[in-house]
Amino acid sequence: MAWNEPGGGDKDPWGNRNRNKNDGPPDLDEALKKLQEKLGGLFGGSNKNNGSNGGGSGGSFVVLIVAALIVGSLLYAFAGFYQVDEKERAVVLRFGAFHEIKQPGLSWNAPLVTEVFVVNVTEERQYPSRGLMLTEDESIVELPITVQYNVNDVQSYVLNVRSPEESLRHAADSALRHVVGSTELEQVLSEGRNKIAIEVKKRLQDYLDSYGTGILVRGVIIQEGRPPEEVRAAFDDVIKAKEDEERLKNEAQAYANSVVPGARGRSQRLLEEAEAYRAEVTSRAEGETSRFLNLLAEYKKAPKVTRERLYIETLEQVMTNSSKVLVDVEGGNNMMYLPLDKMVQEGASASNPARATLTQDQLRQISDYVSRQLGRDNNARQGVR
């Protein structure tokens, strides 16, 4: 039942129990006074008599304000503490302007007037990307790339660019397309990827430095490029042919390494043999020349004796190398032929099978014996006649 309805007991919430229903609205000052009295009662004041609670309510209100200020100050002080890890750096802005860079450790800055940005400067971050791009020879290739980077200048990273990560992505795509656009497809798909990675890293770092992002590119990894699906089979055949070419080159090089040293050894041996033969012939010629000069000197002293000796020595050399002897009998018309080789073989087989040659003395004895025998036979025939 409402307080102003019939039978409600005339319970006025503003404390005007004796006020008539038809009177005006309640007094605002009186309502505020009632509220102050209630608050004073909560903090130790008394509202039993209206005359004695004026000073108590004022003191309790002051206590409330002081307590609120103390609690707020403590909260404000605690809110300003923060921790910077060893791998982090903190950029402090005061009233929106750069103030300082905090090193690792426990720090404090006044809240509301300062703003702190904590950035990890040692973590190696990665940005993977891939896409279709056009090469110098107007071919389309899909080239995956991974950029490894970290924060080098924390102040530039926080203040110069609104979104450094987004700037890195755009710069990486631009640098990659620029380098691939000036490279032929064969180089992109084969051994030219390392060169492309070096050029992309340099160009990307130049872009980031010009933007002032504070990012340092640690490395650019370019994975295996792939042609579009429509022509992948043809490109696989080309790659396989190149691998076969490289394999055959290696095999040919291995064969050359095994053959060339042997050929060089043989050629060196032939050169040494030729040099030895040249030295031998030269020495023999010099010896023959020296012997001829000595013989010439002796010939000038005794020509007849020298001629006879030369003739005999020549016959000995000729007869030594011959296995047949022809004997011309003086005063006769027949010439005797002696097959010494057959005679030697028969004599050797009968006496000593291991001995199959005759010395010069033996040949001379045989010749003398044959000559004497022929002379006796000739004399006998003449006596008969």
Rank of each mutant, 00 (worst) to 15 (best):
W108T: 00
P104A: 12
V121S: 05
Y127D: 10
A79Y: 15
R125E: 01
V118H: 00
H99T: 07
V121H: 04
L132W: 14
A90C: 09
Y127Q: 11
E115C: 03
A110Q: 06
Y82A: 10
T114A: 06
E124V: 07
Q103L: 14
G131W: 12
H99Y: 12
V84K: 08
E100D: 07
T114Y: 10
R125F: 01
A90Q: 12
A97M: 08
V119R: 02
F117W: 02
L112N: 02
R125S: 05
R94Y: 11
T114K: 05
R94E: 07
P128Y: 07
F117N: 06
Q103P: 14
L106D: 04
K87H: 11
V119F: 04
P104H: 05
G131F: 14
G105Y: 10
H99K: 12
G80F: 07
K102N: 13
Q126K: 06
E100G: 00
F81E: 03
G105F: 07
E86Y: 10
V118A: 00
P104K: 09
W108C: 00
F95A: 09
T114C: 09
R94V: 08
Y127R: 11
H99M: 03
L132C: 15
V91Q: 01
V92M: 02
K87F: 13
P104I: 10
V91N: 01
N120H: 05
D85V: 15
S129E: 14
Q83D: 14
L106I: 06
P128W: 12
P128H: 09
F81C: 02
A79F: 13
I101V: 11
K87M: 10
K87T: 11
H99C: 03
P128G: 03
W108Q: 00
A110K: 05
G131N: 11
F95R: 15
R89C: 02
V118I: 09
A79L: 13
L112R: 02
F81D: 01
P104M: 09
L132V: 14
P111A: 08
L93P: 08
G80W: 06
E86K: 07
V91M: 01
F81A: 05
E123I: 08
L106S: 10
Q83T: 15
A79V: 11
G131K: 13
